[in-house]
Design a protein around this nucleic acid. Sequence first.
DNA 1: ATAAACTATGAAGTGAACTCTATGGCAAGC
DNA 2: GCTTGCCATAGAGTTCACTTCATAGTTTAT
Lengths: 128, 128
Amino acid sequence: MGLTIHTIRFYEKEGLLDDRHVRRESNNYRNYSEEAIERLKLIKKFQSIGCSLAELKAVLQDYDTNAHTNLQIIDWIRGKKKEIESKKEEYDQMLDTLNKMLEYKTLLMEDPQKAQEMLKAWHAGSSE
Amino acid sequence: MGLTIHTIRFYEKEGLLDDRHVRRESNNYRNYSEEAIERLKLIKKFQSIGCSLAELKAVLQDYDTNAHTNLQIIDWIRGKKKEIESKKEEYDQMLDTLNKMLEYKTLLMEDPQKAQEMLKAWHAGSSE
DNA sequence: ATAAACTATGAAGTGAACTCTATGGCAAGC
DNA sequence: GCTTGCCATAGAGTTCACTTCATAGTTTAT
């Protein structure tokens, strides 16, 4: 599933997987449960959107101890949603920027003079 | 602008800023041009969407030498756009997941039994 | 039954992106 | 004129997330 054995053991060592996820066979070899696979997928997903392992560890532990922190978890989820939404906006802005760059570079190949003008107009507007 | 002096000097050392951006005064102190500020903003933006400094260095250098690589830059921009778009999709999926988690956790506080049912349904469906 | 290929452990190493330290020059305030 | 504070440099240290290494036990293939 795209993770090396070393990475998974590293996660285990860091406390992202516990006894429920990793059992030992008679020869001391690791045996990963279905839950482990679900959890690793979850880790990959959250990680890909910028969560650190430390953050994930804290949240996952809270999450599965089902402790007295449901409200805190709900807060965390809400916060994450906000983060993701603002990240998406940033991405939209970047797409705008990239589109401008693309337009400029394309124009530069077709009509360098007009490209120059475009550059000036852009610089004039970007001071704000 | 949210960067320490150390970070900026580090960028300079790494070749992300050059003579056009950083001039020296008679006492050898650095003097940053307007272009430097624009460039640092650009770096911050691109970095925040996951570009490495190495990648930025390469692209920026190509970009401002105005060398024979316009087509390559255009390709890079197109590639980046794709990346950003798929990243945005990932974020949407994450929002879904978070919404489900939120729903579950909220339900757990109101009606633990129903929450259990929800969890089972979710696990049954998530095998795909 | 012996070698090849897997598993285990703890610990050291890597690369990215800073961040800090040590040392010293210059400059302004009291 | 001396301290305080900013600037300079080179280089060491830090954090994160792995990744590799050294060593040793286990399983499988020939």
